[in-house]
Amino acid sequence: MTSIDLRRDIAYVIVFIMGIITTVEYFVVSPGLRSISADVQSWATIVAAFSLGVGSINLLRIHGRQVVKRGQGYYNNAVLLAGMCMTIVVGLWGTTSHPTYQFIFFNILYPSDTAVWSLLGFYIASAAVRTLRIRTKEGAVLLVAGILTLIKNSPTMGVVWGGFSVIGDWLLSVPNSAAVRGIMICSAIGVLALGLRVLLRQERTSLGGR
């Protein structure tokens, strides 16, 4: 047995025990089990915080490799690394409530994120104009539902005629909610199945196994 196999075995044992403890504790009233589960969950929270650090190291590794190898567009990778290091230094030295950190957040990160996000509005408009067409019966239904939803999301139209709000609320509460519930149930069953596969060591892509 190689050391990698042994590490994976230990990891799976930990996963199995922790999974069983937290699952059983959710259903069974037991102060002892509750205390153990509380400790387990606070450990998991600490480990999750460390994973942010691991993510940063990964970024350093991947982008650093590009810079060293002078890969395609390596200057973009260099800018990313410089920005990341600068933000980390400022955050650690002055804490995240420091004016410099706040400046980086509100004058660099926030505007650039919002600028790319705002493309969505234009793309939605061009996609809607292009695809909401009465070519088929389903297309007609999509068109009517789309227009009614746009009207519902314009509060002024509710003032013009109260019926728009009633129709819009019905569309959201009945057909929309029915579809969402169905997808939610399927999604929950899928999460249960994935969790079982991980606990029973049947999921090859977890814990680096293939």
């Binding site: 509005g121 408009a125 809607a128 104009v129 909401l132 067409r133 009465i134 068109l143 789309g146 227009i147 746009l150 009207i151 999301n153 314009s154």
Partner: peptide, 13 residues
Amino acid sequence: SHFLIIALVIVGN
């Protein structure tokens, strides 16, 4: 913007 999209969709159809 909603009214514009509605108008363009109707015009296109």
